[in-house]
Write a protein that binds this DNA or RNA. Structure first.
Lengths: 241, 241
DNA sequence: TCAAGTTGTCTATTATCATAGACAACTTCA
DNA sequence: TGAAGTTGTCTATGATAATAGACAACTTGA
């Protein structure tokens, strides 16, 4: 294990990332004991204090738990999230035995940019409702989602969402009985400051960015979204037909 | 724009990430001029020297180019990468007008872990060939791929791959005329040190991790892989049927 | 009970990060 | 030509990161 200096990432943070990767890919199973601080310091070739700082950061995020005199133990797991044409957050979370929740952060009206207009089959500048929301599993925030809908077709959508807290129910309120995912685009980046705060995520953590558009049974665009998932809390499953 | 202290990520690095996000999502188009250093320092509320360090890092990675007296300009773009049941690296890169290349890093034999055995429909401990390779578009490394195949069915696969430098050609060499993607699993994490060096990627950058298994026309598993893509160089397109 | 191994806390030192100000070198445009 | 705006380079200072060593507090197992 060789680390990199002057990359703009503190050494303790690199060690923390390394241990977290070990947890994520199963090298350290949940409940299992990590190697001792001295041994970790040895493998990464850093001072024990640097390892302690890394472990403290992981402990604060709830990934590990230190027991004095005994050792440091692994705590957590990832949420499996299928990407298919019928994608419903509440169903996916519920299937994992966890309690899904949604919450409105902000809603406002704004004109369509050229790209949003193209996705929604509208003209540039057409009035849109922008809905910013956070979705949680139990009490853990999973993703921040920004959705855009036509303000003409869905007037007052922001207020409706504030009540029903679900995109499926919002669409049903306007008479949309069924819909499906038309396109999905996945990439990854580093979380920005405002998303970090809302996802309860440290700066510098990766997020999975999903751009998608939902259409009705006739293929007519309903809503287009950009969702940012805390990468450390989910794994996407792509279904290949 | 508010940044975060003592997150283990240096301020200049946070600014660099912010600017890079701006480039990635099109706020700053290729060829366009960035705001001046003083203006950037102002929006992020940091010292101009901190901004200069951020820009220097981006310039070193080739994302921007500074012109004295004039300004700093944007350089690069992302590779569009469809995830479908028929996924061939060379075809995807070639379609973008770039030259695909593959290169063997390492090949060795190792026994199947329980998980690898399950994916490949073998028994735990069965002999596998592990092939580590890097794939490039023009001269830019795009991903590092670790592939596992049955050593019984594909004897000497490592040597074959070293010659043909393509998984499709390797399989053809053993009489596999066609194959398709059976499962795909996407997540993201921070790059580890050895991948960082091979992808020519700075530490702390995100990578998209794709776990997948290819099967023949009868649905029999051929090869299972874990590929790590430099997130800043690709975007995945998920096809929803 | 006791030795070995673990995490927790303290002091101290050096290198890097971030800020601050001043001015040079260069480009752009009126 | 000249003024305004840009990037490049220098010096200086305080805060934070990382190292190093010593020892306390606690757990485990022989």
């Amino acid at each position: 294990m060789s680390l990199q200096e002057s990359s703009g990432v503190a050494l303790w943070r690199q060690v923390a990332d390394g241990i977290e990767r070990g947890i994520a890919d199963g090298r350290f199973a949940a409940g299992e004991k990590l190697p001792g601080e001295i041994e970790i310091a040895d493998t990464y070739r850093v001072n024990r204090h640097t390892v302690r700082r890394a472990l403290a950061a992981l402990a604060e995020r709830g990934l590990v738990r230190a027991e004095r005199g005994s050792g440091t133990y692994v705590e957590a797991q990832r949420l499996a999230y299928p990407l298919r044409s019928r994608t419903r957050f509440s169903e996916i979370v519920g299937a994992g035995g966890r309690e899904p929740r949604g919450q409105l952060i902000d809603a406002s009206e704004e004109p369509a940019t050229r790209e949003l207009a193209r996705e929604l089959g509208l003209k540039t500048g057409a009035p849109l409702v922008r809905i910013e929301s956070v979705r949680l599993a139990d009490r853990t925030p999973i993703c921040i989602s920004t959705s855009w809908l036509s303000a003409d077709r869905f007037p007052g959508a922001g207020a409706v969402f504030a009540n029903v807290r679900s995109m499926t129910k919002l669409l049903a309120h306007y008479g949309v009985r069924d819909y499906r995912r038309a396109s999905t685009r996945v990439t990854a980046t580093i979380v920005d400051a405002s998303d970090a705060a809302r996802l309860d995520l440290a700066l510098g953590r990766p997020v999975l960015v999903v751009d998608s558009t939902d259409v009705d049974t006739d293929g007519k665009p309903l809503v287009t979204k950009r969702a940012r998932f805390a990468a450390e809390r989910v794994e996407f499953l792509v279904e290949n037909s």
